[in-house]
Design a protein around this nucleic acid. Structure first.
Lengths: 217, 217
DNA sequence: AAAAGATTGTTAAAAATTTCACTATGCCCC
DNA sequence: GGGGCATAGTGAAATTTTTAACAATCTTTT
């Protein structure tokens, strides 16, 4: 039974896998032991075939006629995603959002350890937030290597995002999650994800506008 | 020339339009007056045809042989998305993330006015954050109507998300942006968007893992 | 131990989305 | 004002993604 591990895996599959993990954890908390693709699909708001297909990229985790063991499936997905280890991350930009991330425990709980906080504002440098001292951004390349940072989180204003990225690239960073409202330039071997909640507000505003327009016809 | 305004518009198109607006604003700041689909495509990291096709859903905004007027195109897209007005929003859940949103000026700058902040923690009720007094969540239905809230932003913990949503639905909310790490149940006429930055970290972690695995072969 | 029922893994079909290629049109220069 | 160049808009093709259908197989029942 040849696994498809070396097929290209759709980006959408990855984000759904994250949703499956989330829902499986919810089920685990509720004491559910076994779940079918049908039931999981309902709680994730997707098609059951979709789930089975998504999982097939990584292996066979179910039992025909039965379903999936909640705990085992969750672990299997997490392992497939590379979450069976911890990742060192650095936060660049200590504004409102950066501070929230530094204080928010969820990153650590998920295995992403914030090992560095950087900012270029002299008033912020030296300040302690969430147990970390804010370091001058110009020390990023040096510190990134020293602290063994693999993923950078950009929470600077838009106009300083690229500079922060450049510092990280200089240190050979492997991945970046960009919260700044700006596109950034990186070489193709660096994994970049954009998080922009304003876009989601735009989307909601559009859909409301649209459904109201439709109502008028 | 029949506009396609009443064709179903792909979700992906909407999120790209938000990117176009972002980049057009950047160009505006740099004094660029006119841009071609080719140039805009490069700065957004997409295909030029894609841009032209996305815009075609809403009308014709360009000038053949020339390109698009930066300011006019930006305005046209914003109008198409329903951003030529302000939207009243409420934040439900005043933890680290909720606070960051309340203090973060970007929402207001984008036309999303936070008119209410809600939480169920008695220690937080009455507190003033970003010029707003935190109100008890149980007053949500009443206050939502009173303040004319159209969009709700959920920043509660996962286990309280659905309750917050139910309160909002009770008041006839039209759209929800959910930052809580949980799927929520809503009727189909309510626009829902999920924002979960942990998923983006997952995605980056996966892609790093994958590219390292590939390197070993 | 065979049959019935359930549900996965997988192949095939359908649908959606993206990209290509070309036509139409506007600007600029001679 | 005509020709050349540039670039938007658009229909068709290619690609990707999703959904449906079904064969394989596991559990339970009789």
């Amino acid at each position: 039974m040849p696994h498809r591990k070396y097929e290209r895996i759709p980006r959408a599959t990855i984000s759904r896998l994250a949703i499956y993990v989330q829902e499986l954890e919810g089920m685990e908390r509720q004491g559910v032991k076994v779940v079918s693709s049908e039931k999981l699909a309902v709680s994730c708001g997707v098609n059951p075939s979709q789930i089975r297909k998504d999982l097939a990229y990584f292996g066979e985790f179910g039992l025909r006629g039965v379903g999936y063991h909640v705990f085992e499936l969750k672990e299997a997905i997490k392992q497939s995603l590379g979450l069976d280890r911890t990742w060192n991350v650095a936060v660049v930009g200590v504004g409102n959002l950066g501070r929230a991330l530094l204080r928010h425990g969820v990153l650590r709980k998920r295995g992403f350890i914030i090992v560095g906080a950087f900012d270029c504002d002299p008033f912020k440098i030296g300040e302690e937030i969430g147990g970390l001292e804010v370091i001058c951004s110009s020390k990023l390349p040096e510190k990134t290597r020293e602290l063994n940072v693999e993923i950078g989180i950009i929470t600077t204003p838009a106009e300083r995002a690229q500079r922060a990225v450049n510092y990280l690239l200089e240190a050979g960073i492997k991945g970046i999650v960009n919260f700044a409202p700006a596109r950034i330039k990186t070489p193709p071997n660096v994994a970049v994800e954009y998080v922009d909640f304003i876009h989601h507000l735009f989307s909601v505003a559009f859909r409301i506008t649209q459904s109201q327009a439709k109502g008028l016809i």
